[in-house]
Design a binder for these strands. Structure first.
Lengths: 217, 217
DNA sequence: GATTGTGAATTATTTCACAGCT
DNA sequence: AGCTGTGAAATAATTCACAATC
């Protein structure tokens, strides 16, 4: 098996995303090269971890010098699927939807929110930037027509399964789910859950149990 | 070492949070008891995983019957530190801040956002629910006075490190960080990063590399 | 008969250590 | 001299299998 075709684990992929951000920042600062040590520091991991991660898809570094930033950035973009834009629909035009729609990092990375759906008659027809909020009843037809590839689900938990199913029927192949609900979808549809309450609970757990010892993280 | 005092891993804690949500839903549906099988199905894991997780802090199930919901719910709340309210400050009153402030699951779980800070003079003084937005310049003093325990950082990346440091100096012991920046803080301050761009990139990675094979997740 | 609790086996991930380039 | 690439070792997480219990 050629080294650069080995399976990349979930956690490695997440770190690649962090490396990419760090490398872009370094490039901005005028650096041409970055060591695994420097990357590790910026991303909060260890140097061997960085080298292992980067070596899973080929050898890019120059020994004695470090990693040349521009080619590594473009390789990471390729691997992460960022070398072409994605057509994204936002389902749910509430507060979370609004925050996501305005989130600069999305468009910078090529995630183009070209459709917005909601079922609130008071919101349908409203314009957000370039996009007009459409009736969620038309989701399936409209998402198919617009060739939406990724849907962001930002609706209440009760509505999430239904809208996700309709997105899937419209050909959507990946869903970023902010609803605190498990989505049950046909194989082939990738789901990534973001559970904000869980993130806070991880903190209250850490605070609650640190009476005994002084460790962080 | 007594079984219920073993270290609980990061990923187990995150699953506990999911079990809790699932159990609350089951209780709502009138169930008194839940099997590891049922919990696994609702949370998207396996039955042995559920049993392993739940057994790390004592034996709660009844063999042949499953887990009695009410005591398990209250035990999970205890472990996750949800049996008492937490004083939370929101730093950054932009769109993400606004979404988080209105997020029902936070208050339901006892995370009380009792201070809001921003540095935009146009926003300072504005009232959000019970809370008035305060000048971020007063963060340190005000957070200390209000005995804030957890801070939610929802400011641009450039400002994140500075506000986090001030929060830490004010006695804040945990930070939920939405800024795409690494926070470097004194040991003892727990940081949990939520990186929304990374979550989308995990999806574009999955879509990009699935040409070859039909696996999901 | 159903379902938990858990040691043992397996699999995955991280860390180490050092040979090999530049 | 400095820093990568990577097998090997160590650690962690998950899955299995089945005795124990209700």
């Amino acid at each position: 098996v050629p080294a650069h075709l080995r399976k990349i684990s979930e956690s490695t992929v997440r770190r690649l995303s962090l490396y990419l951000r760090a490398l872009e920042a370094l490039a901005e600062e005028g650096e041409r090269t970055a060591s695994s040590e420097e990357l590790a520091r910026r991303v909060g991991t260890t140097a061997p971890q960085v080298r292992k991660d980067l070596s899973t898809f080929g050898s890019f570094g120059k020994r004695g010098l470090g990693y040349p930033i521009p080619p590594l950035v473009s390789r990471l973009r390729d691997i992460l699927g960022l070398s072409r834009p994605w057509s994204v629909a936002l389902i749910g035009a509430g507060r979370i939807g609004s925050a996501l729609h305005a989130y600069p990092a999305f468009r910078e990375r090529g995630f183009r929110i070209i459709r917005i759906f909601d079922d609130d008659p008071g919101k349908i027809g409203e314009r957000w930037g370039e996009t007009v909020i459409q009736d969620a009843a038309d989701l399936e037809e409209e998402a198919r027509r617009a060739e939406i590839e990724i849907a962001i689900v930002a609706v209440p938990a009760e509505a999430a399964q239904a809208v996700a199913e309709r997105a899937a029927r419209a050909g959507v192949r990946a869903i970023l789910n902010f609803a605190p609900a498990r989505l049950d979808l046909p194989a082939g549809v990738v789901v990534n859950d973001v559970n904000l309450a869980m993130e806070l609970e991880a903190l209250s757990y850490a605070l609650g149990s640190d009476d005994s010892e002084g460790r962080a993280t």
